[in-house]
Computed example of a mutant assay.
Amino acid sequence: GEGLDFYDVGTARGAGGLGIWRDNKLWTSRNWAAWKLIQNGPDVASFSVDYAPWPVDVDRKVWETRVFSLPMGTNFTRMVSTISSDKPGPLVVGIGISKRKRASGAGLFRKDLVPGRVTFWEPADPDKGAMAIALMVDPKSVVEVRQDFDNYLVLVRVEPGKPFVYYMGAAWDKGLDFHNAADWDAYVAAQKPDFDPSH
């Protein structure tokens, strides 16, 4: 009873996937192109992933390197993303959480942009239970929260070539830790994220 893989993503952003937000549309990469193991325990697992260039509308290309760090003892993964571009100027990045609808409803989405946090308690599947997702971003970078057809999106402003940090967290209501939205939200609110990309 400690794990179950029923988190279908499809073309949505899943839990913490990102894209470039432009003209009310999310422009996304394809699957990763290369990866590298950085650390394999004992206290943290860390790896990097490169995404090949992808178009943003017809006049710009971007590409990304992202480092994932999964420390023991937390439900959060720390991401350090560097998005480069063939043109200068800031970008707005949309970091997403897939929407879910089931017979039990549409779930519970909450945002608190002062500390840069959003949470989503998914509607329950009658057999498999519910997933909880959270994103934490640097509140100084937040533009707003938007939605597209598939996702809730936290929009943040970034500079090409400059790394930025965000966190993705998840839990399962049939797992060992969080069994309702209130407990999950309280856990997320108590976090002290480090948004310094040099750490």
Rank of each mutant, 00 (worst) to 15 (best):
E2L: 10
L4G: 11
L4C: 12
F6E: 09
D8E: 09
A12V: 04
A15V: 08
G16V: 02
G17Q: 04
G19I: 01
W21T: 11
R22A: 05
K25V: 02
L26F: 03
W27P: 02
T28A: 05
W32A: 03
W32M: 03
A33S: 11
A34V: 04
Q39D: 14
Q39V: 10
Q39R: 10
P42V: 08
D43E: 06
V44T: 04
V49I: 04
V49F: 05
Y51Q: 01
A52L: 00
P53Q: 08
K61P: 01
V62M: 04
T65D: 05
T65M: 06
R66P: 01
R66F: 01
V67Y: 07
S69P: 02
S69Q: 05
S69A: 09
V80H: 04
P88D: 01
G89T: 03
P90C: 08
G94M: 02
G94E: 02
I95L: 14
S98L: 08
K99E: 06
K99H: 15
K99L: 14
A103V: 12
A103I: 15
A103S: 07
G107S: 05
G107E: 10
G107I: 05
L108D: 13
L108H: 14
F109H: 15
K111S: 09
D112R: 12
L113H: 10
L113R: 11
W121D: 01
P126V: 14
G129W: 15
A130W: 05
A130I: 08
M131Y: 12
A134D: 08
V142S: 14
V142R: 12
E144P: 09
R146S: 12
R146N: 08
R146G: 07
Q147D: 14
Q147L: 09
F149K: 15
F149V: 12
F149D: 11
N151D: 15
L153C: 10
L153E: 14
L153Y: 07
V154G: 11
V156S: 09
V158P: 00
V158R: 00
P160T: 08
G161A: 08
K162C: 05
F164V: 05
F164A: 11
V165D: 05
Y166Q: 06
Y166E: 08
W172F: 06
D173F: 02
K174N: 14
K174P: 07
L176T: 15
A181F: 09
D183K: 00
D183F: 00
V188Y: 00
A189F: 14
F195K: 07
D196Q: 15
D196L: 13
S198Y: 12
